[in-house]
Every structure is written in C-alpha cells, then in structure tokens.
Amino acid sequence: MDAVIRKQLKIKACKARMGIIEGVFNAKSGHPGGSLSCADILTYLYFNHMNVDPQNPKDENRDRFVLSKGHAAPALYSVLALRGYFPVEELKTLRKSDSMLQGHPSVKYTPGVDMSTGSLGQGISAACGMALGAKLGGKSFRVFTVLGDGEIQEGQVWEAAMYASAKGLDNLVAVVDNNGLQIDGKISEVNSPYPIPEKFRAFGWNVIEIDAHSFDEIDAAFNAAAEFKGKPSVIIANSVKGKGVSFMEDQVSWHGSAPNAEQYEQAMSELQQALAELEA
C-alpha cells in the first residue's frame, strides 16, 4: 500500500477510535472493546475500498455494508460521520432518546446504515440477500459484512455460510473480527468456534487470514477477495479487542462497559498522542 494512503488511513482510524470513546463515554454504555477491534477494517472499507457516496446514501448501485456484529455500532457511526454521512458532533448523542444513533444500527434512524442489525447471526443473512439481489439485477455492486468471532457461535451464521457458497455469491465478503473474547470470557473457553478458517473452507468459502490492524494486510486481503471468483470470501481478521486504548486492550471487561471520566480522559489522551505522532 502507498505510504501516504496508509498514513491517511491510520489518521482516520485514530479519529474513528476517538469517536468511539466519545460516543460510549457520553452514552455511559455501549461496547467499546469490539468497536475498537474492527475500527481499522471499517475505516479501510469506507475510505479506501467501497463504492459509496455520502451525498447519495441510497444510490442503488452503491456497495453495501452490514455490521452483523451490530454492537460495534459506535465504530460504524464514527466512520460514517468521518466519511461525511452526518456531523461528527452527533456521535456525542449515541444511545440518547432523541438521537439518530441507536444502540445498534438501524436503517430507520441513521443515514448510511444499510441494514438494521444487533441480534447476532442475522446480518450475514441479509448480506447474502443483498448479494443475491445484485446478481439477480445484473448489478456490479458488492456486499461487505463484519461478524464477531463470538457471533459465529450462532447457527444462523452457518446457514448463511452454506447458502452463500451454494449460490455462488462471490460478490460477498465477510470479515470475522477475531478478537478472541466474548462477554463471558475467552471464546475458546465459552464455546470454541476454532478452527475458524477450516470451518469456512469446509462451507465452500475462499479464506484469507490477516492481522486486522495492518492496513497493508487489510488492503491485500480485500483486493484478493475482489478478484476471487466463484466463491464468497471470508477474511479472518485477527484483532485485539480494545485496540488503541492501552487499558482496554485484550480485556474482556471492556466488551460492554463505558469509561468513567478519568478513564475517558486517559483514553482520549492516548489517542490524541497517537494522532499527533501520525500527523507529525
């Protein structure tokens, strides 16, 4: 990847992380850990890969994005705001009763959200339907969905995985945000879905494994998926839950809790410093 683009993406991703912390802190609830772990992937998709236009969010030829792990809504909102779908200031209204930003993504409230999600396992099915719609209509748009690694414990994910390959949905790319943690603990201990790549291969998918925080690897993976024909592609993105905020990293306790004022200051200070270094 071009060094300038990589740097720009890192800056956007850092700002996206600040938006996540801002939103969850003001809401006093939400899911920072799994939002931070997929922030780089979402930043890449919206700023460097997907064919989208914030001025025309309903364009029928746009690429689609479904956040199957809907609890990472703060990450999606933060990236959508930075991309220009709505003002960044809105992030502070997250989860408030008069906000356009629901606790989980909703097409009814938020410009740029392509599918309402939140109940795990359902987003990937909708993504399959969108990909099928593209094929049926002879359209070239592509469909992207991000799943949690805990989410793939849901049986519906495997119904959809079987379906996507059986119908030859090579215009669909799924990402598994493989941060290794779910609410009750390590996913390997709660109810292990490992090995993940072998499972998707057995279901007929093209499987790519990457470091979820390396833009070079992210870029290579999505470009490879775009070129792969005949099967849907899945990117197993090995990530760190809470990535970018030192005390949240790899800590299951930050799955679904908001920082207090002191923690908020520390998190923002760390991200400000990272941003300053990137912009230097």
Partner: peptide, 27 residues
C-alpha cells in the same frame, strides 16, 4: 430464475428475504 431455495434453514431465508428486499425486489 426468480426462485431461490434456502434449504431447511428458515431463519436464514427470512434474512435473505430482507436483504433482497433492500435491493428493490418484492420478496
């Protein structure tokens, strides 16, 4: 060409129906 069988997987079928509907079809 406009009929799709999901097999014995009703939950996924409803999700696929939803996704298809977002692309302009009456499902």
């Amino acid at each position: 060409e406009r009929f799709f069988d999901s097999g014995i997987a009703e939950g996924n079928m409803m999700g696929v129906a939803a996704g298809l509907a977002t692309t302009g079809y009456t499902v």
